[in-house]
């Protein structure tokens, strides 16, 4: 059984303001695949993960992780505490 991989594709996609179809066209997959990736129903290959990370211009570990990502609110609150 494959380990669950968490991702922030939906967050980055929303920030970039692009649709699933536009992102799918850029990385060369079916738009449905982007939906399944966002929901965690499908673990991508290393090639697809690297392509997605390159599309958002971030390192792949910012986009995918074995541990759940903190929510935006938690991340912002954490930054506020640090400041």
């Amino acid at each position: 059984m494959a380990r669950k991989i968490y991702n922030r594709i939906a967050l980055f996609r929303a920030e970039a303001g692009i649709s699933r179809k536009a992102l799918a066209d850029k990385v060369g997959v079916n738009p449905q695949t982007i939906g399944f990736l966002e929901r965690g129903d499908y673990n991508p290959s290393l090639e697809l993960a690297l392509n997605l990370a390159a599309e958002f211009k971030v390192p792949v570990d910012l986009l995918f992780s074995f541990r759940p990502f903190p929510s935006v609110a938690e991340a912002l609150l954490g930054q506020g505490d640090a400041a």
Partner: peptide, 8 residues
């Protein structure tokens, strides 16, 4: 004519 992606 679209090729299948890795999931398909």
């Amino acid at each position: 004519s679209r090729k299948w992606d890795e999931r398909e």
